[in-house]
C-alpha cells in the first residue's frame, strides 16, 4: 500500500535526522578540529606576534627559497621571508575581508530581501530583476569586475566581495519572509493593529533570520576565497605584507622547484573554508533550519 510505504519512508527519514542530531562522534571530532583551527586563525589575526616572532617586512635575500624543515617551519619565499610568518600575518587581512564583506552582503541582501518579500508587487519585481542581473555573473567574476572598476584598496575589495554575496542573502531572506509572513502570528499582529514596522521587526524578522545567519558562516569562507582570488590576480590592496592570495601568486613562478610557497597558503585557505562551513553545518543543526 502506497500510504504505508510513504509512512515507512517518513520514518526512515526521521531516523536519519535523528542520527544527525544525536551527533556521531566523527562529527563532533570534526567540529572540535574546526573550532581549534578557527581559534588559531583568529589569534593570528588579532595578535600575530604570538605565533610568529620574526618581522614579516624584513627582506633577507640570503635566506631566499629555503625548503620547509631546516630553520623555517614552512620554508621561505623568494625574498627570504618565512612562509609561516607571512601566513600568520596574512590572517588578519583574510578575516577582515571575510567578515566585513559578509556583513555588508548580509545587511544589503537581507534588507533587499525583506523589502521584496514583505511589500511584494512591483517592488518585489524590481528588486527581483536587479538580483537576477547580479546573479547572471558568477560571484568571482562579479567581484572581479567591481574590483577592477573601483581600483584596488582594501575597502574596495570588501565592497566587491560583499556585493557578490548580496544576491544569495537577498534570495534566502525573501523566501523566509514569504514563509513567515503567511504564519498566523503575523496575521495576529496585524489584527492587533500593530504598525507595519513593528510587525516586520518584532514578528517577521526574528523568525526569518536563522537561515541567513547560517548562510553567513558559509559566506565567510566563500568571501575569503574570492578575496584571495582577486589578490592572486593582482586586484588586491598593495600592502607591504602579502595576504594569502598574493602569497599564492608570489609562489606561482617557483612552483616547479619551490612548491612550498604556493602550497601552504592553498592548504591554509582550504582548511579555513572547510572549518567555517563545518561550523555553519553545526549552527544550522542548532538553529534547526531545514
Amino acid at each position: 500500500m502506497a500510504a504505508v510505504d510513504a509512512a515507512a519512508f517518513t520514518e526512515v527519514r526521521g531516523l536519519r535526522r535523528q542520527l544527525r542530531r544525536t551527533g556521531v562522534s566523527v562529527n563532533s571530532a570534526l567540529l572540535y578540529a574546526s573550532l581549534a583551527w578557527m581559534a588559531i586563525v583568529a589569534l593570528a589575526a588579532l595578535i600575530p606576534g604570538v605565533l610568529a616572532t620574526d618581522d614579516p617586512t624584513v627582506l633577507d635575500p640570503a635566506r631566499a627559497l629555503q625548503p620547509p624543515g631546516a630553520g623555517t617551519l614552512l620554508g621561505t619565499e623568494q625574498y627570504g621571508r618565512s612562509v609561516a610568518t607571512l601566513l600568520v600575518h596574512g590572517a588578519r587581512s583574510a578575516m577582515v575581508i571575510g567578515l566585513l564583506a559578509t556583513t555588508f552582503g548580509m545587511l544589503v541582501g537581507s534588507v533587499l530581501g525583506l523589502i521584496a518579500g514583505y511589500l511584494g508587487g512591483w517592488v518585489d519585481m524590481v528588486i527581483g530583476r536587479f538580483i537576477d542581473m547580479l546573479m547572471c555573473f558568477p560571484g568571482v567574476l562579479l567581484a572581479l569586475i567591481i574590483a577592477a572598476a573601483l581600483g584596488s584598496t582594501t575597502t574596495n575589495l570588501i565592497l566587491a566581495v560583499g556585493i557578490a554575496t548580496v544576491p544569495g542573502f537577498a534570495r534566502v531572506m525573501r523566501g523566509q519572509v514569504l514563509t513567515v509572513r503567511g504564519h498566523l502570528y503575523v496575521e495576529a499582529a496585524r489584527s492587533n493593529g500593530f504598525s507595519p514596522a513593528r510587525t516586520v521587526f518584532r514578528h517577521i524578522l526574528p523568525n526569518a533570520l536563522a537561515p541567513s545567519v547560517v548562510m553567513a558562516t558559509v559566506s565567510i569562507g566563500v568571501a575569503i576565497v574570492v578575496a584571495a582570488s582577486l589578490s592572486f590576480l593582482g586586484l588586491g590592496p598593495r600592502t607591504e605584507v602579502p595576504d594569502w592570495g598574493q602569497l599564492l601568486s608570489l609562489g606561482q613562478p617557483y612552483l616547479a622547484n619551490s612548491w612550498w610557497i604556493s602550497t601552504f597558503p592553498g592548504i591554509t585557505l582550504t582548511l579555513t573554508v572547510i572549518a567555517v562551513s563545518l561550523l555553519g553545518d553545526w549552527l544550522r543543526d542548532r538553529l534547526d533550519v531545514e
Binding site: H183, Y185, E187, A188, N192, G193, R202, H203, P206, N207
Partner: peptide
C-alpha cells in the same frame, strides 16, 4: 479601530510568535 475588534484564531500555537514568551505576547498590545 482594530484595538476594538480582536481575533482568536483556530491554531493556538501558530498564532503565537514562537520567539516571544507568554508575558510578552499578552503584554504587547
Amino acid at each position: 479601530v482594530r484595538r476594538h475588534m480582536q481575533v482568536v484564531f483556530q491554531d493556538p500555537l501558530g498564532s503565537l510568535n514562537p520567539r516571544m514568551d507568554v508575558g510578552d505576547i499578552i503584554g504587547e498590545p
